[in-house]
């Protein structure tokens, strides 16, 4: 009895989460995959096996342009979150001595998540709008003659909105890996004659690379599927794959949306695999 139990115990223990995993992750994705081969008329969908949905995606230059635009957002957001997030994480990890302060500063980074989309959307206007604070300061300072329109409802605004929202996902893993760096390594490097820049390049950067990798994976998955920020900050005029899928779902074109979702899933996985090829994150897990 007890021997049998010992054999089955590990299986018994993993069964619940396996079931949850299968039911709420694998099954829905499989369903989306199945639906992506269905036929649909303007009004309804019919179980079938057709490659038309995929053919439509791969032959349309809308797909190409939309992916291009999504990659553009991804690239810019990734770069901005890295360039802003790294110094922030560095500052919190190395220049904020007390844990309480570190936690407090982290909470500050999560503020964008405390507000609803609508509040956020509304609150950008007084800052970036045509008569917003930024334009007024620039106009008042005589730096520009016409208000800058690109500040809001533009690709710039989309990137700004996403960076604002997602930067915590870059900061947190980088902070984590920075905190794991033994301070004696930095002293040792100093002792061996490394300058501040050399210490960063030779010790801190390579040791925080796994954090950058994890942060990048977060950013990739978040930005590739983005549609809310794209719509709100882009004023509905910016395209992303997520938004394209949303428009199709809104018009009840489920099979087409499902096919797009499958392609998006594959593309996102591909990017993540490439990131993992470059950077080893096992140490962090």
């Amino acid at each position: 009895m007890s021997a049998t139990w010992k054999t089955f115990k590990p299986y018994a223990l993993i069964t619940p989460q396996t079931l949850v995993f299968l039911l709420f992750l694998v099954f829905p994705i499989v369903m989306i995959g199945v639906v992506s081969f269905w036929e649909f008329t303007g009004y309804s969908m019919v179980p079938a096996f057709t490659l038309d949905n995929y053919q439509g995606i791969f032959t349309s230059d809308v797909t190409f342009k939309t992916y291009l635009n999504t990659f553009k957002f991804l690239g810019l957001v990734w770069l901005a979150t890295l360039l802003i997030g790294y110094p922030v994480a560095y500052f919190i990890a190395f220049h904020v001595p007390k844990l309480e302060w570190q936690i407090l500063l982290f909470l500050v980074c999560t503020i964008p998540f405390w507000t609803s989309n609508i509040i956020r959307m509304i609150s950008w206007v007084p800052l970036l709008g045509r008569e917003g604070l930024v334009n007024q300061v620039l106009l008042g300072g005589g730096l520009i003659q016409q208000p800058l329109e690109f500040l809001l409802y533009s690709d710039f605004a989309v990137v700004l909105g996403m960076v604002h929202l997602y930067i915590i996902f870059m900061i947190a893993p980088i902070f984590n890996s920075l905190m794991r760096i033994e301070r004696s390594l930095i002293t040792a490097a100093e002792d061996l004659g490394a300058s501040g820049l050399q210490i960063f390049k030779e010790v801190i950067l390579p040791l925080s690379a796994p954090g950058i990798a994890i942060g990048s994976i977060f950013i990739v998955t978040l930005v590739m599927g983005e549609f809310v920020t794209v719509r709100l900050m882009g004023g509905g005029q910016s395209a992303s794959v997520g938004k394209l899928i949303q428009t199709q779902i809104g018009s009840l074109q489920y099979p087409l949306a499902a096919a797009n979702a499958m392609v998006l899933l594959a593309v996102t996985m591909l990017i993540i695999v490439s990131v993992l090829r470059v950077l080893d994150i096992r140490k962090e897990l």
Binding site: E182, S184, L185, T187, A188, A189, D191, L192, P206, L207
Partner: peptide, 20 residues
């Protein structure tokens, strides 16, 4: 003076070897 200009070197407790 910074460590380098003192012509000293230090061997650290637990060695502080660069793990990477």
């Amino acid at each position: 003076l910074p460590p380098t200009q003192r012509n000293t070197a230090m061997m650290f407790q637990n060695y502080a070897l660069f793990p990477h």
